[in-house]
């Protein structure tokens, strides 16, 4: 368990709270690319050399690290890190036939460059780690943060999930059949019955500690599973709810990672079917697209919804009369194989 004090996100959207679906940023050329801000907090000389994943990660983190020296650690989940730098270096290598190469892209391509840069820019010499377990990289970073807070109860940590969409990982994932063949608007994402999703990207950052007093939300628990067996996924969710929710309590919102891929839909439907009839069902992938650490975006969205006590129409799949939003169950799976569940509670 842990409490979220501050949160920030760079995503394809300007304003996720806008009720009007027409005012949301749609996919362009089958991709949902991040709507990057002007990075005022990053020194220009440093910014110029940063690849996109590092830029987004650092850019989302710095505004919420008000007193960075007080942080007891930096924990990042990222499946790919600086993929663009990685392939740029590779292309340079092929082009110059392994000649004398500039090392910049190589150094930036390692997954840990985001957390490393954050440590450097905030002069933070404490715990610094990068979890890369693909579709559960963020869930593992979050589990790590919970354990750090158990070992150091007075501590305060920066936790984040970052993945970029570069031409290269788009190509690789496209060859693997991850994306839709046809052009699909986010307005029709959940109704096009075809394989594949829309590619996305983003960086979501959280400052977490054990202090309930000023917190926005409490992450009660997290659990993960690797399986493509529907019954195992359902059992995992049943046990997770039993262990973490009191009998007289209920899930107000089930935030589902449904992504328009008809191959993954059965897992979301099955989990949805286990919930109470007075649970609202919401979806978020039309806002951020699909990427391995999209669950970090979902947690950020969850914080906003709990704070505003208002769910925009485009997020709602199934509405209930319930007004108060207290308990949220977040479920996401990556390619139907890596499943993550989080239980989030309002602190207000």
């Amino acid at each position: 368990m842990m409490y979220i004090q501050h949160f920030n996100c760079i995503s394809p959207q300007h304003n996720v709270l806008n009720n009007d679906l027409d005012l949301l940023n749609d996919a362009s050329e089958k991709k949902m690319q991040a709507n990057e801000p002007v990075y005022e907090s990053i020194p220009p000389g440093v910014l110029r050399r940063m690849g996109k994943a590092i830029r987004m990660g650092v850019g989302a983190a710095l505004p919420i690290c008000k007193a960075p020296a007080l942080l007891n650690g930096i924990l990042i989940g990222t499946a790919n890190g600086g993929m663009e730098d990685c392939i740029k270096f590779l292309n340079q290598m092929v082009q110059y036939e392994e000649g004398l190469l500039a090392p910049g892209n190589f150094v930036q391509s390692t997954n840990n460059a985001i957390a490393g840069q954050l440590g450097l820019l905030t002069e933070n010499k404490k715990y610094n780690i990068t979890h890369v377990s693909r579709g559960l990289a963020f869930e593992n970073a979050l589990t790590d943060a919970m354990m750090q807070l158990k070992e150091n109860p007075a501590g305060c940590y920066l936790l984040g999930g970052v993945d970029e969409l570069s031409t290269y990982n788009y190509n690789i994932e496209k060859l693997a059949g991850a994306y839709k063949e046809e052009v699909v608007s986010i307005k029709n994402l959940y109704t096009t019955d075809s394989p594949g999703c829309i590619a996305g990207e983003g960086a979501s950052m959280f400052v977490v500690n054990n202090d309930a007093a000023n917190a926005i939300a409490k992450v009660e628990a997290v659990t993960t599973l690797h399986s493509n067996n529907l019954n195992e996924v359902k059992d995992k969710l049943k046990i997770f709810i039993e262990e973490n929710l009191c009998d007289d309590d209920k899930i107000d919102l089930f935030l589902s990672g449904e992504n328009g891929d008809n191959r993954d839909l059965k897992y979301y439907t099955a989990c949805e079917s286990l919930l109470n009839s007075n649970t609202t069902v919401g979806r978020f992938k039309h806002l951020c697209g699909e990427y391995p650490t999209a669950s970090a975006f979902a947690l950020w969205l969850c914080c906003i919804l709990l704070q505003k006590q208002n769910i925009p129409h485009h997020i709602i799949k199934k509405k209930t009369t319930e007004k108060k939003l207290k308990n949220v169950l977040l479920y996401n799976n990556y390619k139907g194989y890596q499943h993550g569940f989080m239980l989030i509670k309002s602190c207000r």
Binding site: A79, N80, G81, T110, N111, N112, A115, N128, I129, T130, H131, V132, S133, R134, L136, A137, N140, T143, I172, E173, L175, A176, T224, L225, H226, S227, E232
Partner: peptide
């Protein structure tokens, strides 16, 4: 190999071989 380039592919392969159901993670801090 499209699904085998990332660092996570190594543990995911072991996980599948042994049908592991506990926590599976990969760390890259260089």
């Amino acid at each position: 190999y499209t699904q085998s380039y990332d660092c996570a592919s190594v543990c995911l392969f072991l996980q599948q071989r042994y049908k592991m159901s506990g926590i599976i993670n990969t760390i890259n801090t260089a």
